[in-house]
C-alpha cells in the first residue's frame, strides 16, 4: 500500500472521510434538524428568537474575542460548581443555541460563564454592565480585573442636556467638567446581547436524570 501511489491516495481519502464523516457529518445528522420546543401550556415555542439588537451584539462579542476568556455553557449540577456559582439551575443543552447565528461556547473560564448572565439571582442592570465595560472594575470592588473597553465609548462635550447614554462615573474616573462619556453603538448592542443571555425554560432533555422525574414535558421553573 505504501508503494502504490493510488492505494496510498485512497487511504488518505478514507482517513479524511472517516474523521469528517464520523464527527462533523455524524453530529449534523443527529442534531442538524433540532427544532424549537413547543409548549402546549404556554402556547409558544422555546427558546425565543433573539432580538435584533442582541443579535448584533453577539457579533461584537465574537469580534472582540470575548470567548477567549468566557464560556457560555453551563454543566450538569453534579459536574463542577456551575450551579453553586449561580450560573444556571440546569445544564445547557443543544436546543438552547439553535437560534444563535454564532454560538459562543468558549473553552476558557478565565472569567465567569455567561450563558445565563441575565437570568441570575443578582443580575447587573444595563447601566452597571455598561459602566463595567468602560472601567473594567466589577461593581462593588476596586480592582481592575477585566480589560477596560474604552474604545467602545465616546468622550463628548456636554451640549445642553447630558446624553441619555452617558455614564454616571465615580469622581476618580469621571471626565473633565463639561464633558461626558457616552456609550457608542457597539457598547449598547453588546450590553443588549449580554442582557439577553438567559435560559429560563427547562427543556425535557435538560432535566437531571432522577428515577422519580417524569420527563414528559418542559416547564418554566
Amino acid at each position: 500500500m505504501m508503494k502504490n501511489g493510488f492505494l496510498f491516495f485512497i487511504g488518505l481519502l478514507a482517513a479524511f472521510v472517516f474523521g469528517w464523516g464520523g464527527i462533523a457529518l455524524g453530529s449534523h445528522l443527529q442534531l442538524g434538524a433540532l427544532a424549537p420546543y413547543y409548549d402546549d401550556g404556554e402556547g409558544s415555542t422555546f427558546p425565543a428568537r433573539p432580538q435584533g439588537l442582541a443579535s448584533r451584539g453577539q457579533l461584537v462579542y465574537a469580534d472582540l474575542g470575548c470567548a477567549s476568556c468566557h464560556t457560555q455553557q453551563v454543566r450538569r449540577p453534579d459536574f463542577g460548581s456551575d450551579k453553586d456559582r449561580g450560573w444556571g439551575e440546569r445544564q445547557s443543552v443543544a436546543r438552547d443555541y439553535i437560534h444563535q447565528v454564532r454560538p459562543q461556547l468558549g473553552e476558557s473560564r478565565t472569567g465567569p460563564d455567561l450563558a445565563n448572565l441575565a437570568g441570575r439571582k443578582a443580575p447587573y442592570d444595563g447601566a452597571e454592565l455598561t459602566q463595567f465595560l468602560y472601567t473594567g472594575i466589577v461593581p462593588g470592588t476596586r480592582v481592575l480585573n477585566h480589560p477596560p473597553y474604552k474604545f467602545l465609548f465616546d468622550e463628548r462635550k456636554i451640549d445642553g442636556e447630558v446624553s441619555a447614554n452617558a455614564l454616571a462615573l465615580p469622581a476618580s474616573l469621571a471626565p473633565a467638567a463639561g464633558r461626558q462619556i457616552v456609550a457608542g453603538e457597539r457598547a449598547r448592542t453588546l450590553v443588549a446581547y449580554l442582557q439577553s443571555l438567559n435560559t429560563p425554560y427547562e427543556f425535557p432533555e435538560a432535566r437531571p436524570v432522577t428515577p422519580a422525574a417524569s420527563a414528559k414535558e418542559g416547564a418554566h421553573k
Partner: peptide, 18 residues
C-alpha cells in the same frame, strides 16, 4: 461548514473541534 454555509447551533462547536 463554519463560514460559508454554517451548521446550526452547537454543531459549530463540534465542527470547530474536529
Amino acid at each position: 461548514m463554519l463560514l460559508w454555509s454554517p451548521v446550526r447551533g452547537v454543531l459549530q462547536a463540534v465542527v470547530n473541534g474536529w
